[in-house]
Each structure stands twice: as structure tokens, then as C-alpha cells.
Design a protein around this nucleic acid. Sequence first.
DNA 1: CAGTGAGCGAGCTTCCGCTTGACTT
Length: 766
Amino acid sequence: MIENLVIVESPAKAKTIEKFLGKDFKVVSSFGHIRDLAKKNLGIDIKGGFIPDYEIPKDKIKVVNELRKAASEAKTVWIASDEDREGEAIAWHLVEVLNLDPQKTRRIVFHEITKSAIEEAIKSPRTVDMNLVNAQQARRILDRLVGFEISPVLWKKVQPALSAGRVQSVAVRLIVEREREIINFKPESSFKVTGIFNTSSEAAAGENSFKAEAVTKFHNEDEAVRFLEICREATFTVKNVTVKPGTRSPAPPFITSTLQQEAYRKLGFSVSQTMAIAQKLYEEGKITYMRTDSTNLSRMALAKIRDVIVNEYGEKYSKVRQYKTTSKGAQEAHEAIRPTYPEKATITGTQAEKRLYELIWKRTIASQMADAQIEKTIIAIEMNNSPVIFNAYGEVILFDGFLKVYSESQDIEGSEDEKAILPRVNTGMKLFYEKITAIEKYTSPPPRYTEASLVKKLEELGIGRPSTYAPIISTIQQRGYVARENRPGEKRKITVLDLTGGNITRAIKTEIFGKEKSKLFPKDIGMIVNDFLMENFSEIVDYNFTAEVEEQFDKIASGQLAWNKMLENFYGPFHKTVENTLEKRNKTTGTRILGIHPETGETISVKMGKYGPVVQAVHPEKSDKPRFASLQRNQLIETITLEEAVKLFSLPRSLGTYEGDEIIVGTGRFGPFVKYKNKFYSLKRNIDDPYLITLERAIEIIKEKDIADKQKIIKDFGEIKVLNGKYGAYINYKSENYRIPKGTSVNDLTEEECMKIIEKKQKSGK
DNA sequence: CAGTGAGCGAGCTTCCGCTTGACTT
């Protein structure tokens, strides 16, 4: 018999809490939700008044059985799931599934995981709050209705196996709309003028010199040249010097979304990588819970952090701060993400674990440190023959404060102005230019989303939760709506004008623009689905939809609105839209007619085909079968031109013969290739172009790969081969691979021994 | 690994949020 059974959501939390509670308490975990809507079918009896049909998922049966057993042996059951909507629902499901007496079951919440907080919680138990539970049920049912009614519409009208939902569809919309902004963006250029000035005309170049930029931009080269000619004749004097004291404050401690952003910016971790590493740190007791939207730090943590700062950096570096959570829809069931033991600045573990921990440690410590004191200086320089002013910006840190430990990164590279140390100058002082440069600058389109910046945007909109940011990102990629891709960038010419020693020189330089690394690009199917949803389900993909239903969930939680009434109001019009769309809409393929093939007279169009986007050529008079060609990886239905489409039909083509056999170049499922003697050779990405490749280059690729393949072969017994792979040697037989048992000397393997390994696996496998 | 795109029909796909392992390769 157990005196007290406490149920929490996470096993790591259970372990910690058990230590605080002593012998009379047994603490176990529910591993999150233990029941959900039926997996098959809708799982909701709509006519009966939106009655949910709950079932215990397969992977939860074991946990539930253990919980049932423990509960039946306990005198008192305490449910300590999180203090939010989902946590309350977990508590209610536990009461139902474990057959607990609602009046005798004690619902408690921990505001922080400390002995005193837990003891405090034990003193004030309550019963399960059914209003809050109903708000969760309404949320759950609404999401199921939206997802399971719209997705089948997509299967019928667009393509099988697609999906739509309150959260994922908005995420896709953000990426599609951003891409269209970029497609429609027209870069404009202007000339930015910067000068390097010096207080003396004789100083050696660089010594005591400083940079200043002209406040005015010049529209074109003529204007820029004219201005440099004026500069050539000008006398420059210091107009005034402004010195402004300023302060900078640290960023709040990490929550899930900010951790994902900073880990991406500073460490280059993907959202899912960050979460996996954080999970590990959490399980090892090194950090607090990693799925949180609260910037709150426990009182105990605040005190410990203060000690660390005072010991390490001194009293004047400490400033105790409590941050307010600003994000929309925050439910604040946990603390901020912080080191469990702030006195440990480093840990043992893998390189990635160490780096992520260090990032969390620095951010946490910095958040409790003093403001940095800065002195900003602006030197304004005037000209005797022009109204244009040059400004030099300088910054001196008088007291580093939190900057000693941590400074937050920006999303856009180079967005921070260059801040230099300026020489002492006085108003009226004469200045001499060393060099004045007018450089052509193009405006840039808005940036594409990274995984982390998408999470940031979703959080701003109040869409998704800390536990779902990473899964959302993988879902929209799995469905093929978006993809994380790189782009090599394009070259463009820019004009640079230099004025030195009275001479103006002009140079043309090239710059690379549009280079992208690991950015989210929409795919054709994402754009088609998005347009379809915008046209037919604009309410669901509206950026405010979540916020609006959240308001109603809040009303349900406070008892002002009945949950089934809310669902009825939503479902009535929604379901009508679903039926109308099913009835009226034709199948969407996103077809665009591009024009007429200049040589054959065929009509060229582009659309979403069965296996992906294709261009199609149909002759208006002849009744031949249409010709098809797949789009290339970086082409979109929306932007492909007639010229590019026509080019796609020129593959596959023959390059000629090599040692009597033909070499054919084409493009397939895995990109461009050459085919020789029935063997395929991939072209090198970003180096070879299937439309331009020469016979010589093709032969080179073939030879290279043949050599590489030969090195791969350790032993060749004909049908059986011993090959060298990424993870060491393995056996290949009839296009199946077999692992070589550990401790085998690979070089001494005989054909018979290989066959034994193969037979052994074939027997055990089936 | 690389070709595919006629048409029919059966049977399948799908949501969001809470939590960790259990599975191969």
C-alpha cells in the first residue's frame, strides 16, 4: 500500500520531485496525454453535440496499466500535471481512465520545482477545473474538425495524402507569401557615399583616420560623379560633435522559441537538433524544462544566479530582474529555460551539448546582470560648397555590464552599424579626406524564413505551442509544401567611384546577391494548396484565426461560454463551406499556359502532374500524345518562362560516342545525369549544366566515378561483393546489403564465409 | 536510384499538443 501517489507529466520531473517529498510519496509520470480522439474516423459525434470518442493510443496502454495499478494501491492520488489547459485536461483524463473519485483526487500545481514550492502546493489542493478542461476539449475537437474535413477536400481536388490544419496551413502561407514578395521585388540601385577623413593632411594613411557616411544618397552615377567633383574642391569642417550617454539591457532568459532562434544564429543548429540536445540536457538534470513560453525564474534561481554574478564579476555587475512574458497565447506552466545549477558554467558531454548548455548559461546569467553603459558619439562634418553632411558614428563602452557575458545575435547579417572609436575633434576643426567612395548599392527583398525565424513569426501570431514548433516545421516539409534549400546566388555588376588625391577613378566590380543557405522555399504543391485554401477557406488560413478562437477558449475556461455552443457556431458555416467546395470546385492543377513552341508550334503549358510539376507540349492540329518534361529542382510553376520550358524538352540528348558506346545526358528523379553503357553518373550540382555539358566533361565524370567505384570494392567474388561503405565494410549480394559481424578480419574473408553470413541473416530475417 | 503523365477503382492518406523511448540502418 502506498500512502500517496503523485502523477506528473514528465518522468524527469517525477524523479526530481520524489527526492523532495520523502518516503510517504511515490511519484510517477503519465508521459503527457494518455487519451486522444479515436485515431481512425473523425472521433467526434457531431450530431450528438460534438461528443468526443476518446481512446488510449497503443503506445500509452502500458503506461496506463501501470498507472492504474499504482492508483489502486494508493490511499490518496495527487495529480500534478502542468497548470495550463492541456495539463488540466491530462488531469481529467487521468481521473476518468484511472477511475478516481473526483472529490477525493487532489489536483495540485507546482509553480517551481523546489522543496518549499512543492510543500506549498501540497497544502492547497483543489479539484479538477472542468471549465478549463472543456476549453481544451473544444480546442482539440476544433483542430480535428478543421484537419479532418479540409484534408479530404484536398485529396479530391488537388492531390492525395495532402493535409491542412489551423497551424500548418498558416505556416505554409507565410512562406508562400514571402516568396511572392521576393518574386515581385524590383531592386533599385543608388550610390552611397562614404569618406575616410583625417585631422591632419599629412598623417600616414590609416593613422587617426575615421570613416563617415554622407547622409544623402545619390540616384545615379552622374549625380554621384558630380558630388565627388564637388568633394574634390571642398573644405571639410567639423560642424558639431554630439555625445550621448546610453544604456543597453540584456535579453530575457530563454524560452523555447528564443532558444531555437539563438541556437540557429549562434551555433547553426536546426530547430529539431536544438530540441533533441535540450531534451538530453533536461533528462540529465542539467537544465530546466525546454518546452516553455515563460521567461520567469524561480526565486531560488534568482538568488543563486546573483551569487554567481557577485562572486565572478562583483556586486556592481548584478541586477536582479524579473521579466514579463510578452508572447501571445502564453500559458506559463513552466520556468524559463535555465541551468539547474547556475554555478556550473560548463558541463561534460558531447560538443553540441556543451555548446548549447553554455549558450543557456550565458543567456541566463546575462539576464540578471547590470545594463551596459555606452557613450555614443556622432561627428557631423559639413562642406563649404554643398549642403551634404557626413556623419561619423562612434561608440565607447563605459561599463560593459551584461555584455561581459552575452550579446544577442541579429537575424540579418551586418544589420548592426559599424561602430568605431573616433578621435577627439572640436567644432570648427578642419578635416582632410583620404578617400571618398561612392558605391552602388541595390535594395534587397525581404529575407526568406529560416526554420528559426518562422518559429519566431508563428509565436508572434500566437500560433503553435513550444511543444509543436519543431514538429510543425517537419510536417510542412514532409508534405512537400516547403523545402529547406540553398541557392548559390547570382552575380551583378556594381559601379564604384573613388576620389583619392584629387583623382576620380571608376571601377566595375561584381557582387553576389541572392545567396541563400538553409532557407525555407515553397514548392509548387505548397503554393497550389495555399491558393486553394485562400480561395475556399480564407477564414482558417487567416493570420487572426487562432487568436480569435483562443479568445473563445478563454471564455469557455472562465465559464462564460459553453464549449459545445462554441463548436456549433464554428462548425455550421464551416461545414457548409466544405460541402460547397466539394460540390463546386474542379480539380486544381495550377495550370498556366506559357505560349507557343517557336519551332514546333505546340502549345506549351505547365502544371502539377501526377509525379510533380511538368511542362506539357500539345500540338493544336496533330493528335499526337502530348510531350512531357519535369521541371528542374529550382524552377516553379509560377515563375517558369516559355524559353525555360522549351529548353526542358531538349533532354534527354546524345552527346556522341565514347569507345563505341553512346553517352546520353538527361535529368531524372535525382537530378541531371549522364548514361553510359547502362550505368548512370550524376552531374555535379552547381558545376555541370546538362544543357551545356560537353562530351569531354561527360567522359571525365564517367572515369572519375568508375575509379571511385573500384576503390569501393574490397573483394569481388562475382555475385557476392565486399564493399567499403560509409560505416565500414559490408557484403552486397543480389542488391541486398549484409552486415559483417564484429571482429571479422575483412581482408581475409572468403566467398564461403560471406555466403554463411548471408544465409544466417536470411534465416533470422524471416 | 534515374524510364514515368490512358483510365478505372479499392484502399489509403489527414489535425494539434502533451510526453518519451522503441524501432532499424
